[in-house]
Amino acid sequence: MSLADAMLRRRSWPAVTDAAPTHDQLVPLVEAAASVADHASLRPWRLIELRGHARVRLGAALVEATGLEGAAAEKLAAKPLRAPLLIAVVSCHKPSIKVPDWEQDAVAAGVGHVLSALLDDAGWGVMWRTGHQTRTEPVSRVHELTPSETLLGWLYVGGKTDRILPPRRPFDASEVLSEL
């Protein structure tokens, strides 16, 4: 199968099973994702695996960030438990006179997208989740981010269910591709 075929087949999996790749299974996929275009080879990114109780700690940080209480807080705290593995995608701004922060963020996002596609190709269900809480102090604290780091979101990873996802809507590239 070609890379284009794999990308056309790739889908976001909003619900996954409790199966997840091991750390050792992730390593070669991360090594492959590191091949994204990276001006000055800064590698301005890192990934954090959240499994088990780390997901509970993240749920508590999400609640702290919002100040919700009661049933709403419980619902928010449970969100990180929707997948057995969360991979935090972190942009790490590095000093550079050639590469601005926005470009370093683009590299980190590229790693996240490529890793998502690689995980899908390896048979895992993946969905990239974000939200306003990614930029809050409690969530930064639970991820142990430094002042030069920004959380871009999480890849929720687990086994693919038997659910049949609806086909992708056709995409007309002429809507976004033009000539100058």
Rank of each mutant, 00 (worst) to 15 (best):
D18S: 13
E179P: 00
E149G: 03
Y156S: 04
G131D: 09
A60S: 13
A72N: 08
P170T: 14
V114K: 11
A6W: 02
A20G: 01
T134K: 04
S148D: 15
H132M: 12
T66R: 13
M7N: 02
P14Q: 07
D105R: 14
P21N: 08
R11C: 04
A83Y: 01
T130Q: 09
V90L: 02
V107Q: 05
E149N: 06
P170F: 08
G158M: 03
D120T: 08
V114N: 14
S174A: 14
P166G: 03
L58R: 12
S178N: 03
R57H: 13
R57T: 12
A40P: 00
K160S: 00
D24H: 09
D172L: 13
T146L: 14
R11D: 04
G70N: 10
V157A: 02
R11V: 07
H39I: 02
V99N: 04
C92K: 11
E103M: 10
L180G: 14
P166E: 11
S178M: 05
A173Q: 13
S116I: 03
R51K: 11
A4H: 14
L180N: 11
R43N: 12
D172C: 10
L115T: 11
W154K: 00
G153A: 08
L180T: 14
A77K: 02
D101W: 10
E69R: 15
V56L: 13
L50Q: 15
R82K: 07
R43K: 15
A173T: 11
V126H: 10
D172R: 14
L47T: 06
L85Y: 02
R82S: 04
A88H: 09
A40I: 00
E103N: 03
A88L: 05
D24V: 00
A33C: 06
G67Y: 08
L118H: 06
L29E: 09
T134S: 08
A73C: 12
D5Y: 10
R82F: 01
